[in-house]
């Protein structure tokens, strides 16, 4: 085995190559050499093995409640899961709307619907549910957001707008000026759906916005004005 000057230069970089932090041009040059040099290749494999073995030494920590549900919702194809959720959300919304009218009209039938809505929320361990529309820059309705206050609280977003494709970042602002990024909704051919649990009370939400790439419209759903201080 003969160590060339290039071998010496690459060996210097091997710890960073193994850790995946070497800069692009250096990395490309070193990997070209490693592909043709058995000794450097073996050296890189050994360093990468140590790096791989270091990662499991990080302490295992149980994630917050609801993590598994959120991951599984993201893993399973939306077509298989969302229609059922949408139907549930729509049923609750219809019941809520009818329930509100029923109480106002004080008719027996509508009171039954209102009672049904209350029992639905009770069974779902929830307090209330609301829905808002996403408005596109041209003023048209671009989607909807359902927000459910319960244990846990969650939001579910549907987008149906134009023919755009790509990820939108979902951001939530609160009435007291808070701000958080909730995740990413992927829109294909103008359609997409996404949901997750939230740790902000629905009553504190001021706005939820969807921001995409520069050539994509910003969509926003207003829940209420910021609280004056």
């Amino acid at each position: 085995m003969t160590e060339t000057p290039e071998c010496a230069a690459v060996r210097e970089l091997i710890p960073e190559l193994a850790a995946g932090v070497a800069a692009g041009d250096e990395r490309a040059r070193a990997l070209r050499h490693v592909a043709t040099c058995t000794d450097c290749n073996r050296e890189l494999d050994a360093a990468a093995f140590v790096v791989d073995e270091l990662l499991p030494l990080a302490p295992a920590v149980e994630p917050p409640p609801g993590f598994e549900v959120g991951v599984l919702a993201a893993l399973n194809p939306p077509r298989r899961r969302w229609p059922r959720l949408l139907r549930l959300a729509a049923a609750i919304l219809v019941a809520m709307a009818l329930g509100g009218v029923g109480v106002w009209q004080a008719t027996a039938d509508d009171r039954r619907v209102a009672d049904s809505y209350r029992r639905t929320l009770e069974a779902a361990n929830g307090r209330y549910m609301t829905a808002k529309t996403f408005t596109a820059p041209d003023g048209s309705t671009a989607g909807r957001i359902f927000a459910y206050q319960g244990a846990p609280s969650w939001i579910f977003i549907t987008v149906k707008y134009g023919t755009t494709a790509g990820p939108y970042t979902v951001r939530l602002s609160t009435r007291d000026g808070g701000f958080q990024t909730l995740g990413t909704i992927t829109v294909q051919s103008g359609s997409g759906a996404w949901g997750r649990m939230i740790d902000v009370p629905v009553s504190r939400i001021a706005q939820v916005s969807l921001t995409g790439a520069d050539d994509m419209p910003c969509l926003s759903a207003d829940f209420g004005p910021p609280r004056s201080t």
């Binding site: 149980e62 993201a74 995740g183």
Partner: peptide, 28 residues
């Protein structure tokens, strides 16, 4: 794997919310 994935993400980012996002994306 969730405890190991979330634990590693939390060790790196040091923030529960961000670690949750990272761990979820890793599984996806």
């Amino acid at each position: 794997f969730q405890a190991r994935v979330f634990g590693l993400a939390l060790s790196v980012v040091g923030d529960t919310g961000l670690a949750e996002e990272v761990a979820q994306e890793a599984f996806v």
